[in-house]
């Protein structure tokens, strides 16, 4: 039997190009559950992903754009996508690290589904 959080993250982890997917509490930046490839340090990814998402979320709110649901950073060597699970600030977030050539549309789709499932499971 697949554990509930594995069931939430597994579809993301199986998406082509995904190297790591982590469910974490935004406030403390510590992983709640993670599925990663061996070369990815889940704790570092979570800490940096949560911090960056929090920074972007607060800046967006202060700039008057309101709460943010997804943040996407593209870089030469990969991409990081963070989706908020639930409507409250400080909620759970799902963080994905993927290759730079991973299909962005597919990533956003599976990540949104995982965030919804995580919010329901929380």
């Amino acid at each position: 039997m697949i554990a509930p959080l594995d069931a939430v993250l597994d579809p993301v982890a199986r998406t082509r190009g995904v190297r790591a997917v982590v469910l974490a509490a935004e406030d403390d930046g510590v992983p709640v559950h993670a599925i990663t490839q061996t070369d990815v340090d889940a704790e570092t990814l979570t800490a940096l992903g949560c911090r960056l998402y929090r920074s972007a979320r607060l800046a967006s709110e202060r700039a008057g754009f309101g709460a943010s649901s997804i943040m996407h950073v593209e870089a030469e060597g990969g991409q990081i996508v963070v989706a908020r699970a639930g409507n409250r600030a400080g909620a759970l977030v799902v963080i994905v690290l993927a290759d730079s050539d991973a299909n962005t549309g597919a990533l956003r789709l599976v990540l949104s589904r995982a965030a919804t499932a995580a919010a329901e499971a929380a």
Binding site: A56, G66, A67, V73, E74, E76
Partner: peptide, 14 residues
């Protein structure tokens, strides 16, 4: 994270 230079950052806000 060793991902190199950034190319874009986007936020879906309310």
């Amino acid at each position: 994270l060793g991902l190199g230079e950034w190319r874009a950052l986007s936020i879906d806000a309310a």
